[in-house]
């Protein structure tokens, strides 16, 4: 059974139907990419999954729980973390305070400390800067902080929205390596990316989103060799 199942999802922005009946599923352990151009509705889908936007119709099921009726703040407790677009770290708080907020719903202090150690091991730079105000970090470091913050909730699945956006190519490599590492650590990943090439390189399967609809789906490898995908998204 799929870990996360989205069925016939429809989302409206005012009178505009932004998502027009999207269905997809994510199985445990997979890295799934949702690719598509700007405005295709990728971010809207992630926001709807984690409850920041209410859908007009459709189902979202996570491990058998109906997410549509679950308030956003309860979703992280169920084991789903969301690294939002634009990172949205708490700029005026320190790196450590940001990470601690990532573990907001967890009770056991020793488990939180263990997660903190793990995050520092993955992102040594965050430990070096733990007392620095987050707003002063570089874009790449902020992305690492946003990912570290999500990992602090010890999620079963992590939703990542445009992790490569506005970041220098060198750091992008590092960030994609980290996503791979997160996945091999046993966490399921749902990745939204404009950088289709990078996303397909690290994912098992992918869905191509065009103006609020799934246009194509399949194995990452198949899609990479698909002529239409090559033309439209891979710039070949």
């Amino acid at each position: 059974m799929a870990m996360l199942r989205v069925e016939n999802l429809e989302v409206f922005y005012g009178v505009i139907r932004a998502i027009k009946g999207v269905s997809f599923e994510v199985n445990e352990g997979e890295v799934i990419a949702l690719i598509g151009a700007n405005g295709a509705g990728k971010t809207t889908i992630l926001h709807t999954i984690t409850g920041l936007i209410q859908p007009h119709a459709g189902k979202i099921e996570f491990e058998g729980h109906d997410l549509v009726k679950t308030p956003a703040y309860k979703i992280v407790q169920m084991g789903m973390a969301h690294v939002p677009e634009g990172r949205r770290i708490f700029q005026q708080l320190t790196v450590l305070e940001n990470l601690r907020l990532g573990a907001f719903t967890r009770k056991s202090n020793s488990e939180i400390q263990a997660s903190l150690k793990r995050v520092y091991r993955s992102f040594p730079r965050l430990e070096e800067r733990k007392n620095q105000v987050a707003g002063t970090l570089s874009g790449g470091e902020q992305q690492m902080l946003a990912m570290g913050r999500a990992l602090m909730s010890d999620p079963k699945i992590i939703l990542m929205d445009e992790p490569s956006k506005g970041i220098s190519p060198l750091i992008v490599m590092e960030i994609f390596n980290m996503i791979r590492e997160i996945s091999s650590g046993g966490t399921t990943v749902l990745l939204v990316e404009q950088n289709a090439k990078k996303a397909l390189e690290i994912s098992n399967r992918a869905y191509v989103l065009e103006t609020g609809k799934i246009a194509l789906e399949g194995n990452a490898e198949e899609l990479m060799n698909n002529e239409n995908v090559k033309k439209a998204y891979l710039g070949e």
Binding site: L52, Y73, Q77, P84, R88, I89
Partner: peptide
């Protein structure tokens, strides 16, 4: 929004 994603 980000606070809600943290479970607040």
């Amino acid at each position: 929004g980000a606070a809600e994603l943290m479970g607040v």
